[in-house]
Design a protein around this nucleic acid. Structure first.
Lengths: 156, 156
DNA sequence: ATAATATTGAGAATGATTATCATTTTCTAT
DNA sequence: ATAGAAAATGATAATCATTCTCAATATTAT
């Protein structure tokens, strides 16, 4: 936590950006937040602690955090940008349940390696990737079996 | 082309949806379109052929096509829904150049298999996935090398 | 043909995000 | 410490893709 603040502080001074109480508060809240927080969700928490903070500042701050390498943008396909803590965290992708929305962080070295090779096969140098695996978790599979044995579309 | 229209026709009658000239025109244009077309792009073509067609109809039609299995939704991360032709097309993912936006359709059996296994490892039954590999194509790499030898961020 | 119902087009509404801009705050050089 | 330059803020308007609403129209089964 202290370390992250230092990193952010260095990022600010390196870019001639300024250290403000708003940024400090938002950083605090972000570091304590649960994974995959959206700007709106973060703003809801922040404004309880300081109602004078505007939501534009929260949006701006999340962008800064991503640029500083402390946050990573994730997109579960609903067109809402979510941010997860990214400092000293190993890279991972996401497994998401189509039934209940539960997410699991996953990583597989073979996949990572093959991605690099596929890119190279087409003359690309891989910079990054987005991989989201969608499925049904155990619970939701049980629900489906009981209620809709013949259903082919998963609509709960 | 005839086959796709039949499939769509069956889809309509199966759901008690109606066959309208608007739907026929939009289907025609979609089938002739190049890959990864957005609703807006499709609408631009359609309205040249029949200016009386509203854009809501195009949006509605793309949703129908996806439900009928003729189109597949793809999302390159810019929050614009794009649709690609999906009938009798083998599944594939996308490799996208961060420099110029060029896309390549790719598929790798090892990755596909490992995705299934990863999901199973966590008790999930994989239903589908989204995988986008981002990188720099050969051309854009050359540009970068020439102009910004020491740059670590790829901003063209 | 008719009735029932689906579809349409225009425009309003939405929802997340960004831009604008006057005001306030921070930093740096004195 | 303080002034002056530059950056940040908050309120609000704007944006953009998409969806909704609804009255008018078109399609289909009878």
């Amino acid at each position: 936590m202290r370390e992250e603040k230092e990193i952010f502080g260095k990022y600010l001074s390196r870019h001639n950006f300024r250290d403000t109480p708003q940024r400090e508060l938002i950083l605090d809240v972000f570091l304590k937040s649960k994974e995959h927080i959206s700007a709106e969700e973060l703003y809801d928490i922040v404004k309880k602690l300081d109602p004078s903070i505007g939501q534009a500042t929260v949006y701006r701050m999340l962008k800064l955090l991503a640029e500083a390498g402390l946050a990573r943008e994730v997109d579960f396909g609903d067109c809402v940008k979510r941010y997860e803590y990214n400092y000293n965290q190993p890279h991972h992708d996401h497994l998401i349940c189509r039934g209940c929305g539960k997410t699991v962080e996953v990583v597989d070295d073979v996949i990572e390696e093959m991605q690099k090779r596929v890119a190279e096969k087409f003359g690309f140098e891989l910079t990054d990737h987005a991989m989201y695996l969608y499925g049904l978790c155990e619970n939701c599979r049980k629900k489906r079996t009981n209620k809709f044995v013949l259903t082919t579309y998963f609509v709960f």
